[in-house]
Computed example of a mutant assay.
Amino acid sequence: MPKITYVDHAGTARTVEGSVGATVMETALRNNVPGIDAECGGACACATCHVYVNEPWSDIVGTAEDMERDMLDFATDVRDNSRLCCQIRITPELDGLSVTTPARQG
């Protein structure tokens, strides 16, 4: 199973196993990862699962679609590597993915 590392804004890392086909958000919730609120439950209708995709993963994960970019307008401290983790589906190629949560969710 692919491993995903979640780093909080203070630098504390937590690595968990994810299931292929699940989202990075679902994996965070199943493993009680702090900093992922996911108020809409993964419907891409809020920005409370905002993360920064750490290098070198940005190219592998890809860029946000239009709807996701629209929702990121509601996030705090959006950067070039910002994504909603409800929109990142885990594949075998994402084994080792590292994301950082912002100091607060929008």
Rank of each mutant, 00 (worst) to 15 (best):
G41I: 03
G42M: 08
R89Y: 03
D80G: 13
A47Q: 00
Y52Q: 09
V61F: 04
M1A: 14
G42L: 11
D59F: 04
K3V: 11
C40F: 10
S58F: 00
D59G: 09
T101C: 04
C86M: 06
E93Q: 11
C85H: 01
G106A: 06
E93G: 07
R89A: 06
A10L: 15
G106K: 04
C49N: 04
T15H: 04
E93D: 15
H50L: 11
T100E: 13
L29T: 12
A64K: 02
T27S: 08
R30I: 05
P102K: 03
R104F: 08
T27E: 04
L94V: 03
T23I: 01
E55R: 12
T48N: 08
T101N: 00
E93K: 11
G11A: 12
G96Q: 10
Q105D: 08
V16H: 14
D77W: 01
T23Q: 07
C86I: 00
T23L: 04
V16G: 12
I90Y: 09
V24C: 04
A64R: 00
D95R: 10
T5F: 11
T12W: 01
I88T: 02
I60P: 00
I36A: 05
E68S: 04
H9C: 10
V33A: 13
C40P: 10
T27N: 11
H50G: 07
T100L: 00
R14H: 13
L72I: 02
S19N: 15
M71C: 03
L84I: 02
V20H: 11
T27R: 05
D77T: 06
I60L: 13
M67N: 12
T23R: 07
E55K: 13
T5S: 12
L29Y: 00
T23D: 05
M1Q: 13
M1K: 13
V7S: 03
N54S: 14
H50C: 06
D80P: 06
E17L: 10
G11C: 14
D59N: 10
T23W: 06
M67A: 01
A43K: 14
E17D: 14
C40H: 09
N32D: 15
C44M: 13
A10P: 00
H9S: 15
G62L: 02
A10I: 09
I88H: 00
C46Q: 09
S98K: 13
A43N: 14
R30K: 14
V99L: 04
I90K: 05
I36F: 08
W57P: 01
A45E: 15
I60F: 01
E93V: 00
I4L: 15
D8G: 03
A28Q: 06
C86S: 00
K3T: 13
V51F: 07
T101V: 08
R89W: 00
E17Q: 14
R104H: 11
